[in-house]
Amino acid sequence: MPMIEVQHLTKRYRDRTAIDGLSFTVNEGEILGFLGPNGAGKSTTMKILTGFLPPSEGTARVAGFDVFEQPLEVKRRIGYLPETPPLYLEMTVRGYLKFVASLKRLPGRGLKAEVDRVAGLTGVTDVMDRVIQNLSKGYKQRVGIAQALLGSPPVLILDEPTEGLDPAQRAEVRALIKGLAGKHTLILSTHILPEVTMTCEKVLIINQGKIVAYDEIRQLATVHGQAEDVSLEEIFIKLTAA
């Protein structure tokens, strides 16, 4: 069953076309790796899917609800980590997560347990009572991920979740994301290619707002590479060079 359905999605800013006629679907429990060079339109697509920006043309449906017609239904089902983690620097991690939980209308009972659960998953339990401003970039990013996981929404949209993390933390986040597969439908954008090969089953590569490749990773290698062992990196560079 398709959890996310995108059809002919187009976004124009005045005379610039950010994304141009994107169509793809993500099935329930799948992880889609969303690839593309900077400025290709990854973040714009994600902002439309989460109902932050309206599309110029085309439709996007999440769990059967149109993001534009029924935004509240869609927002209730999505956990979203934007490009810049949306943190209130003056708040403590605990205060912030509690605040986001109330924005997501999580029931008051069990709220504390839910906050502790996502904190445990993302490894921020030790910094719960520190002010976000004073945290390192890696911790800030993890608080951002924790916020998206609150209430365990069926769909997770993570815009560059491993940005700003060191290699060890990156491995942790990758493991975390892999653990989420099956229970959640995920869209994950990144420009770190090994990330995709390690976590995703399917990849969508866009360049200048258009889809240049959309397939399973194994398929991509056989279609675009002469040899079986061609790396995703080579495919990426080849496809986005134009």
Binding site: K47, G51, I78, Y80, P86, L89, V100, R105
Partner: peptide, 11 residues
Amino acid sequence: NKTFELLMTTP
């Protein structure tokens, strides 16, 4: 601060 995005993407 881009937190407006959070307010607008939560229900």
